[in-house]
Lab assay of single mutants.
Amino acid sequence: MSIQHFRVALIPFFAAFCLPVFAHPETLVKVKDAEDQLGARVGYIELDLNSGKILESFRPEERFPMMSTFKVLLCGAVLSRVDAGQEQLGRRIHYSQNDLVEYSPVTEKHLTDGMTVRELCSAAITMSDNTAANLLLTTIGGPKELTAFLHNMGDHVTRLDRWEPELNEAIPNDERDTTMPAAMATTLRKLLTGELLTLASRQQLIDWMEADKVAGPLLRSALPAGWFIADKSGAGERGSRGIIAALGPDGKPSRIVVIYTTGSQATMDERNRQIAEIGASLIKHW
């Protein structure tokens, strides 16, 4: 067993022997301040990774656009098919120029040779490549099948209805392509620590998230040296922004954090800054 596999296998073990965790309302004060600064709703939840206990939450059962955070769930569904012998990570998928959609920095470079399922998941999570996500959605049967996968996990809230990039439209009061912070946090925890996926697939999923290259201005910008984070960000229309993450000190994750916002007129930089400040408060009061 590799060191990384050992780390993920012992996530519940280490967490069980940690000192009790206590909620700190100071972080919620910052979440509410972010709402004021952005002029928009902000949803927040913080779960203990081992027990699933909610440590703090704000608007945990209000719907927010998922945006690209759905790509972690998508690759979880792909990995479940791999575990069941219905898919192979090494299978190569070929596609054409007509398949390319807006923001496809990886797939646009491989029109000639195609990409493997493993490479597509890596591109979808680490670079948020939209064509990679659409190609992977095709392998599982489309958005409705991802929703069905989530329902089978016990998540009857999260739903995907459309493809990239239309799913980022974020129309107010439109339930399409949305989740709730509580539902997303619980589902992410199941994917990373539950028995739904094999140990190898859980490790692969967290490795992809740990290698995320496009979430630097968010929670990662607030992390002290030595902290662990595996995350996936999302951005959408109407001032929408979000991030889902597993993080913790001492090089291992111990909490799940989900943050979503929508309806702001603020710039992307300002949305990023507010999420980073929430992260800084979380870490300060850990």
Rank of each mutant, 00 (worst) to 15 (best):
H24S: 09
P25D: 08
P25F: 12
L28M: 08
L28W: 06
V29T: 13
A34Q: 12
A34K: 03
Q37W: 08
G39I: 12
A40V: 14
R41G: 05
D48F: 03
D48A: 05
I54A: 14
S57Y: 07
F64W: 04
F64V: 05
M66T: 08
M67I: 09
S68N: 03
F70W: 07
V72R: 02
L73N: 05
A77H: 06
L79W: 00
L79T: 03
V82I: 12
D83A: 08
G85W: 10
E87I: 11
L89H: 07
I93W: 03
Y95S: 03
N98C: 06
N98S: 07
S104T: 11
S104I: 03
P105F: 08
P105H: 08
H110R: 12
L111D: 14
T112M: 13
T112P: 13
T116Q: 10
R118F: 09
L120K: 00
L120T: 04
A123M: 04
I125P: 00
M127Y: 07
D129Y: 00
T131F: 12
A132P: 01
A133D: 03
A133M: 00
L135P: 00
L136A: 12
L136D: 00
T139C: 15
G141H: 10
G142C: 04
G142D: 13
E145V: 07
T147E: 06
A148L: 13
F149N: 15
M153I: 09
G154N: 09
V157N: 10
L160Q: 11
D161S: 08
W163K: 06
W163P: 07
P165I: 06
P165S: 08
L167N: 07
I171C: 15
N173R: 09
D174W: 02
R176S: 11
T178N: 03
T179H: 00
A182E: 07
L188E: 00
R189V: 07
K190T: 15
L192F: 14
L192R: 01
L197Y: 05
L199A: 12
A200Q: 10
W208R: 01
M209C: 11
A211Q: 14
G216K: 13
L218D: 03
R220D: 02
S221N: 14
L223Q: 05
L223T: 13
P224E: 08
I229E: 00
D231P: 04
S233A: 07
G236I: 02
E237G: 12
R241E: 03
L247A: 06
P249V: 11
D250K: 06
S254T: 08
V257A: 14
V258D: 00
T262L: 07
G263K: 14
A266S: 12
A266L: 10
T267D: 11
T267M: 12
Q274S: 12
I275P: 02
G279C: 15
G279W: 04
A280D: 15
S281L: 07
L282N: 03
I283P: 03
K284G: 11
K284T: 09
W286S: 00
